[in-house]
Design a protein around this nucleic acid. Structure first.
Lengths: 202, 202
DNA sequence: TTTTTTATTAATCATTTGTTTAATTCATCT
DNA sequence: AGATGAATTAAACAAATGATTAATAAAAAA
């Protein structure tokens, strides 16, 4: 019935994704999507039944991508904890520089419709990852301070993601250009792993 | 012409603030606001001219409050850097536990309409605060590692605010209740100052 | 080529939504 | 009590918006 991979279907999805990421669900109209993808308004419903359905599809795909990229570093069997920290910082920061609206999109959807996002994120995924194992090992060996690993993983994400979310303030405070802000974030690729280690080390 | 402080005016503003914080501007309708504050729909425009104006008023008030509370700790002449860290963590975490939608509201408005928010936040406010002075002094004295103070202030805010923003994920990962999550955040009041010191210390 | 299915279009529908109007009630002042 | 202005209400308007329809064009199958 539906040619999900037709050219127009993709055109609609691309434009819709761009708009949904930038403006959110409510502030994006179907006519905008149609205009942006230069298709006829009716084709949106022809291909995706409804605005809601289209959003759901884009949301699931986007967040699944985002999360899977996240988790594959966490579960690498070959790398040490320190290496994982470096890889994570570097990878996420690159990813978000490439798509600056991503964090807010995820976090907004998490607020508005947590269940749909949380279906994708299996609780185990992070808290039973190799990274957390390695952290717990370090604690057991007396290398790291005791503490709930939730703080450990939360801190990593906080230091990586939050600066992007508050980028307008940072840019204002430092009179940065977008480029200079990105340079600051690139600096953080090296700094964050060091900081996190210092936070947990005895 | 307008009785800005009449009972109904306040009722409208309270209901609107609650809804705007929870759902954002676009997803909140004037009829919802009218219903929630049990006033007649027309009174919204009678008192506040338009939905947009009403939002603007609430937004400015809310963010001004938020920011001023933030900054007054930063500029206290009597406290040390370490004390400021403790006070900040404690104060912000309490504030956000009391109004969990606040960070997302600020951050969303920062994305959608940066200029209106940034009018309130004078760039100097944070980067030329006593806290940053004390940090720079510490660097000069060789106590702290060299580094742009922007990282220092960003890290403090990141560690405090981001966990709230990602609270649904944390709650899911740890199978927390809301109460248990708040306890975790209360734990962080003590942890964050220590972490931040460790991050900057030589 | 003819037929049948799929894709696209313009026009329209039915709601929703922000806002306004005109009438009515309420409070205040003389 | 009566007059004046403010507050409140029900009703309606106009524009926007998500969705549908019926006709047409394009593509695929026969």
């Amino acid at each position: 019935m539906e040619a999900k991979y037709s050219n127009t279907g993709i055109k609609i999805k691309d434009a819709a994704k761009c708009l949904f990421l930038k403006k959110g669900y409510s502030a994006t109209t179907t006519r905008e999507i149609a205009k942006e993808s230069s298709i006829n308004l009716a084709l949106l419903n022809y291909y995706f039944t409804s605005k809601r359905k289209l959003f759901e599809i884009i949301m699931l795909e986007t967040i699944r991508d985002f999360m899977s990229k996240m988790v594959e570093v966490y579960n690498d069997e070959k790398t040490t904890l320190e290496e994982k920290l470096k890889l994570t910082s570097s990878k996420y920061i690159d990813m978000i520089i490439a798509e600056p609206h991503l964090p807010m999109f995820v976090v907004n959807e998490l607020k508005n419709n947590p269940s749909s996002v949380l279906k994708i994120i299996r609780g185990k995924m992070i808290m039973e990852s190799k990274l957390v194992d390695q952290y717990n090992d370090g604690v057991k060996k007396g290398l790291y301070k005791k503490g709930d690993p939730i703080h450990f993983v939360t801190n990593i994400l906080s230091l990586i993601v939050f600066p992007f979310i508050s980028s307008p303030i940072i840019i204002k405070m430092k009179k940065f250009s977008r480029k200079e802000f990105n340079e600051m974030m690139n600096e953080r690729k090296k700094l964050i792993p060091k900081w996190v280690i210092q936070m947990i080390k005895k």
